[in-house]
């Protein structure tokens, strides 16, 4: 049995969190009307969540500005993974097909229309899709086998973004302008904008330059461990190693790198000082300008921007170094996830 906790702002009542409560507490339980949620995507204007019910495993709902709770994707489609951006939602079904809901306002900008359609895979090979990922503006899908991995942008059709022959990409994360892919062997690639040091070990600092081909990050090759998970914030990246350490790089405008330094950006990955060997980091998550780490013991640390309360501190001050979130729940934090300016903590009761 899991309970969902939240910190950040919920201005449009997407999660039915009482605004009054957010002024008093820093971390609060998501109301029971939205409990039994196992997956949630939240991008400020609306939230998409998977409610578990005994009859059906895959009941997705959306709620937010201009909407009341609406069921999306017919249960029969067996949608297991969803990514949401400003104007569309893409669902990945159990059999590996893609469905897209386009969000449109009417001419007066008053009413939202939801149009569902299946995405034609077209040129893409018949290999199964693995994962859908979104930033605010676009949605991407990862298709991978040990022989070939591809990343596409999902629009009316699929647009190829990057291809990795002979590589098995298992993790893929996207910032507002940069991309990171991780293979089964722990090899890392990144590409995209680099003006705010988004790309690891890149000597290019030019804000105009866009690296359009994946570039291998060699920094981790010399370490005795491999990268097992990556998470992109808006302009920064967190990488979790098999030793349970976090490395971060990119923009440090709000202290989101957690290095306790005034440096505004850095492209050289640098460890975040956290916990110890006995209590390694087991999960990471990055929001637009904040970061989160879950330790094996269930302790949670966050750093970066906190103006919207996304770090879950008592104050609304941002922090350039990790601060432990004081535990206000019964049970153990088991899963973490960041929205744009928010944080979700899934607690095992």
């Amino acid at each position: 049995m899991a309970e969902l906790y939240f910190c950040g702002t919920d201005m449009y009542h997407c999660l039915r969190i009482n605004q009054k409560e957010t002024n008093v507490k820093s971390v609060f339980k998501v109301p029971t009307s939205i409990q039994h949620v196992s997956e949630v995507e939240f991008n400020h204007f609306y939230a998409v969540y998977l409610k578990q019910s005994s009859q059906n495993q895959y009941s997705w709902f959306m709620n937010g500005l201009g909407l009341s709770e609406t069921q999306i994707f017919a249960s029969a489609l067996l949608i297991k993974d969803v990514a949401a951006c400003k104007n569309s939602i893409v669902g990945l079904s159990e059999d590996g097909s893609l469905y897209r809901i386009k969000l449109e306002a009417d001419d007066n900008g008053e009413l939202l229309f939801l149009k569902t359609s299946e995405i034609k895979t077209g040129e893409a090979s018949s290999d199964p899709f693995k994962k859908v990922v979104a930033n605010e503006n676009q949605i991407f899908v990862l298709q991978s086998t040990p022989e070939m991995s591809s990343i596409y942008m999902v629009e009316d059709n699929l647009v190829l973004v990057a291809q990795f022959p002979d590589k098995y990409i298992v993790e893929f994360s996207v910032g507002l302008g940069h991309f990171v892919a991780l293979s089964d062997t722990g090899a890392l690639w990144n590409w995209g904008h680099c003006g705010r040091s988004e790309l690891a070990s890149s000597t290019e600092m030019n804000v105009m330059t866009v690296i359009d081909k994946p570039r291998r990050v060699e920094f981790f090759d010399d370490l005795p461990c491999i990268v097992v998970k990556v998470s992109c914030g808006g302009w920064h990246t967190l990488a979790l190693t098999s030793e349970g350490d976090i490395y971060s790089w990119g923009w440090n405008e709000s202290g989101q790198l957690g290095h306790n330094t005034a440096v505004t950006s850095r492209s050289d990955p640098h460890p975040v000082d956290l916990g110890s060997a006995e209590d390694p980091v087991v999960d990471i998550a990055a929001g637009s300008r904040h970061s989160l780490a879950l330790l094996k013991s269930g302790r949670l640390f966050s750093w970066g921007r906190n103006k919207e309360g996304q770090c879950g501190f008592g104050s609304k001050d941002s922090s350039g170094e990790p601060v432990e979130i004081s535990k206000s729940w019964n049970g153990t934090a088991a899963k973490i996830k960041c929205g744009k300016w928010s944080t979700f903590i899934s607690v095992k009761v």
Partner: peptide, 11 residues
Amino acid sequence: LNDPFIQLALN
């Protein structure tokens, strides 16, 4: 028009 939510919010 690409950003229905901002349109809604502005209205």
